[in-house]
Design a protein around this nucleic acid. Sequence first.
DNA 1: GTCTATACATAGATAGAC
DNA 2: GTCTATCTATGTATAGAC
Lengths: 238, 238
Amino acid sequence: MAARSSDDVRGYMRFNRFRKIVALSREEICREIYLQNRDRIKIKKEKVAIANLVKIFNATLALSNKKGFHAMSLRDLSKETGLSMGALYSYFSSKDELVDIIQTQGRRVTAQVLHDQIAHADRPREKLRRAIISHLYLSEVLYPWFYFSYMEARNLSKKQLKKAIESELLTERIFVDILKRGSEEGIFAFPDTNLTAAVIKAVLQDWYMKRWKYASRGTSVEDYAVFVVDFVENFILA
Amino acid sequence: MAARSSDDVRGYMRFNRFRKIVALSREEICREIYLQNRDRIKIKKEKVAIANLVKIFNATLALSNKKGFHAMSLRDLSKETGLSMGALYSYFSSKDELVDIIQTQGRRVTAQVLHDQIAHADRPREKLRRAIISHLYLSEVLYPWFYFSYMEARNLSKKQLKKAIESELLTERIFVDILKRGSEEGIFAFPDTNLTAAVIKAVLQDWYMKRWKYASRGTSVEDYAVFVVDFVENFILA
DNA sequence: GTCTATACATAGATAGAC
DNA sequence: GTCTATCTATGTATAGAC
């Protein structure tokens, strides 16, 4: 397959290009969170609010991913952000709300980016490749978010837990749909659609769950992406 | 490949046979824990101690896997086991010790079973197959243990965390060694040994981390095992 | 061996001064 | 908007009766 752009190689989008295209700075994410939760957040000056939200989410993710959300006390969070306990409660009304906001925003961004990236492709093979690569790249850009979402799914309220499960199945569904279409077109052939999609997801999740392992071996996200595409295509290409 | 036993199919050991061979009842595991920690456990009547240890570990795993070890209070544990707070502290001296005991025992059993199962095979292809299948079957038998170990690795002490990482790499090492030997013998061919082993591990872990998903779809551990072996062999067979 | 009662620390959350 | 001070609940852990 020919390269589509000077900074792509063998049809694989480069990580840096992806990064620029999706352009997800922490500040932009926090701005979205702010606009989405204007009613709940007591601070009305947008600039102040966003700057502190960045601090709060960065600190929450850092502390939680180190020792768990439940083990992170609000006093820890207070120290890490430089904000007092009282100030923190101007940005969220309970610890549960804090975790819900993070999860909700993470899901929103993931669904949107994946959807956009796949829409650009047409044929099933290209769609599958883009789905795999953009999922890996996104989990690299938003690593703390992805790790957090996986590890803290248990601590959610019933309502939020239901949403988390829906989200897991939705992502898997994207792969199921691509696989089915490729199968109908005679391009793909495999024994079981659900299992194939599940295995793809498992491999994608390992990237952010075992980051320490890959980092210590010098495996880049691009290396991993090429390998995974190869691995999967080897199994399903007719 | 011919079946080696009346209850094996196409060279795959059946789950029930594995279960009988390894014979890991909760009581036996707790007996081993008791003998291993005789100095720390204050109760000297073996029968009493083991019966209560079964209660304690069952309850700890159930509660922790539901809402996290840190979120499980000792009052929760007291209620679930029917033992008082005071009684609990006759079996462990702190919450940290409790989590350490569970992790240590889980690792011990896993290493031993995997080692035994692989020793029975000779050729690399058979070795790989046995490694995959016995890992899946073991994680099915000890599901709460495996889930707990994955989720609670963060909460460990430095010393225990080091052991957990070693254990992860040890298991992966088993696959690396088999892959290398197969490669040398010209039976296997693949682009990267470490990545191949990592991907196999990722797929094995998904079985116990996403158990709800597979259960809801009626996928049995045998279905999954056959699929994974197929998936992996498709990639590596020369 | 197991219980009850309790000590002591730390958690989440809020009120009111600035 | 942010801080300090403080309330109340809940946590781990232990002492001593039975």
